[in-house]
Structure formats: C-alpha cells, structure tokens
Write a protein that binds this DNA or RNA. Structure first.
Lengths: 208, 208
DNA sequence: AGCCGTATCAGCCAAAAGGCTGAGAGACGG
DNA sequence: CCGTCTCTCAGCCTTTTGGCTGATACGGCT
C-alpha cells in the first residue's frame, strides 16, 4: 500500500516543521510538499498531485486560505482539502466548508485527531474538531440568525467604525434603510447597540 | 562548550514540534523540556533550570503568557524569556516587555532570527522582530498616545459593547466622568466615535 | 395567483452619545 | 511650594442612534 501524499500550506515555518514531524510518525502518511502561501500551493499542485492538502486559513499577505481553497477546487474538483487553523470563528468555518474544505481542524487538536482527519479526507469523509462541529451545528440549527448578504455587507463596514450616514453613502442607500438593516442585524446577533454588534462581529465572525 | 538549554511553552503541539525540529538543527541549542500551559511551565522550571524560556502568549485556558512571564520572573529574576507569538499587537508587546520578556519574535520570523534571539537572550541581549521593534518605537515616540491605566481599563470594557451608563456602574464613576475618559481615548486613538474606537482597539490593541 | 424573504424608504420620538467649557482633589517630582 | 498628570464631576447643546409603525417593490416558490 502506498502512503497518503500530503501538501502542507502554512505561512509559518515552525508550523510546517511541526506538522511534518508529527505526520512523519505515521507510516501511511507522507508529506511530499510544502507551500508558504496560497499562490505557492497552486504552483505545487500544478507540478505534482497529492491526496490531501492541509491548509492554514490565515496567511500573511496575498491570497487567503479561503480563496486558495476555491482556486484549487476550480482546477480539481476532487481535491481533498483539510483546513488546519488557530481560529474557530463562525464565518471562517462556514466559508471554508462552503469553498470546498473536507474538514476543519484546530491547531490544538490531538495528534490522533489530525491523523484520522487526513485518512478520512482521502475517503471523502468530513472530519471536524469537536468545537468546530458544534459551531457549525449551531449555524444550521438557527437559520434565523444567519445574516442576509446585504446585512453581512453592512456589518462588515460597520466594524470599520462608520456612521449611519457613511454607511448609506458607501452602499448607495438612504440612512433610513441603513437603520432598518441595523435593527435586523442587532436582532440576529442578539445585541442592542452598535457597539455590542461591532464587538460581537469582530470577535465571533472573524472580521479582522 | 555546553549547549543552551531551552524550555518551550506553547499550547499547540505542532508548534512545539516545529520549534523542536528547527532548534534541533543547531548544535549549540538543546530543547530540554516542553510545556503546554503557563502552569506547566512553572512546574518544569521548579524541576530543572533552563537558560532560555521560549513562550507563546496566547494559551487557551488558564494563565496567559503575560501572567506566566510575571510568575517566572517573580521566582527567578534572571530567567531569560523570549516571547514567540503570532500577533504583534501594541498592547501585547508593551505588556510582555514590561513583564520581563527579553525579546519578542513573530511566528513567521526566519529561522536565523530565532536562533540569534535565543543566543542573544542568554547574554541578556534584547532581540525583536523588525515589525515588533517598529511598533515599540512608535509607542515610545508618541507618549501622547499612551492611554492612562484608567483609560485602558475603560477601553477594555468599551470593547465589550457596554453603554456609558454601564461603564459608569462597572467602574463606580459618574456618566460624566465616563464621557470625559472617552473623549480622551478618542483623541489618543485618533477616532471620533465609539464605534471606531472599538474597531481600532480590538484590531490594533489585541483586545480579543 | 398568493406568499415569503429581501431590500428599499419615511416619519416620529426617545435615548444615547459626543463637543465644549470649567473645575476640584490627590499624587508626584522638581 | 508649584506645576503637571490623572481622575473625578457638572451643565449645555447638537448630533447620532435606536425603537416603532407602515409602506413599496422585486424575485422565487408553491
């Protein structure tokens, strides 16, 4: 039996080394390539195919992890991709899964969990860290709390600290409409003021 | 010549493995212990002394890195401690240096930079990643922009989304005083609204 | 055709936030 | 002792925000 080939994508050298060392303990898993950015990952995949791509989401400059996942899936629909990141923000999880990630692991996951996720990914199984899964579940269970595209757009600008007037100008809508959207956003986020909405959004939705 | 003994403190197994692998390439540096939390780090140091402690700041539950640094320095004033973390937020840097860190490295630092920092730390030299140093410099250059302790306390609560009234109740001061502090905070942060202040604080001051 | 979700807008009113000026009490260092 | 910093508070006025009610329009689904 041949080993499962893996491409590591992470802008931190130490994380790549650590993963490589960790995965090296498993005879059926072989790290055959590394990339420090989304762009580099695409190049590597052009050269040699791998069974699983293990990818960090936050990646300094350039293409972020989500975009990299989309690009990879555009070229190769069947490519198995595992997200391996520090954060478990709601938005990141949803976007990553949406983009085509097969699994979502946190960097403090146990080694066995990581091995299992890689082995599962090649078989098309979806593996999630427990806290990640529970967040996803919550999203699905509460469709009322999912923001509409327009609301999400507004919230994103809101976290830049804009006033209602500025929001209206940016989005080419009246201030009245801005207030309507905000009221809906507050209700969905379970807050009562814009300050709390911003705090919640930045912390929980990963809008950095 | 005996090697420089190192204790790694990081809650992520992969990061510890990666650092261990990286440092293992240097004959004069020896990782002799690891810890996954601040508490564990203190225990390890009780057992065996090391030349340098390499510590992450963000550490899941329990004691955070800053607190761990303070505790270690309480017990052993001379202990060399290097911060090795993902973020370069102004507040973290100042607090870490204040707590007694000898150096501050980012996780995407080049290997040579990391080696140099460890060798420098045992000699009492202070080594910083370039972006970190420039931030520190900016802090020192603009004393007008440093928040007073009370202002920082208020800002921290502000980022929780509290109203002026709530802030007053929490801090046992009148709403008028809250407004005075806020005006000063806005001026120092260079913003005009509480929304922008929250956005700035969370993003730039690392108040997550 | 009828319903629902989404996006748009208006007007009214109360509450909150922000700008401005002024001021007293302690602490700390020169 | 004096100046400076910090923290505290007050009053006044304007702007912004938030709550409420109601309305129009478009697209998709049944």
């Amino acid at each position: 039996m041949s080993a499962i080939t893996v491409l590591l994508v992470d802008d931190h050298l130490v994380v790549r080394s650590g993963l490589r060392a960790l995965l090296g303990t498993q005879p059926d898993i072989a790290v055959v390539a590394e990339a420090a950015s989304g762009e580099e990952a695409l190049e590597r995949l052009e050269q040699d195919a791998v069974a699983v791509v293990v990818m960090d989401l936050a990646m300094g400059a350039g293409m972020d992890g989500i975009e990299a996942i989309q690009r990879i899936r555009e070229r190769n629909k069947g490519q198995a991709i595992l997200v391996f990141t520090t954060y478990d923000s709601d938005a990141d999880i949803v976007r990553a899964v949406d983009a085509g990630a097969m699994g979502y692991l946190l960097k403090d996951a146990a080694p066995d969990e990581i091995f299992a996720a890689i082995r599962g990914a090649v078989q098309g199984k979806s593996v999630m860290s427990a806290p990640v899964a529970s967040r996803l579940f919550q999203q699905l269970r509460n469709p009322d709390e999912i923001l509409t595209p327009r609301e999400a757009e507004l919230l994103s600008l809101l976290t830049q600290g804009l006033s209602n007037r500025e929001l209206g100008q940016r989005l080419f809508i009246s201030e009245a409409t801005v207030k309507t959207h905000l009221a809906h956003i507050y209700a969905k986020l379970g807050v009562e003021t814009r300050a709390a909405a911003i705090a919640t959004a930045i912390r929980r939705e990963g809008m950095r």
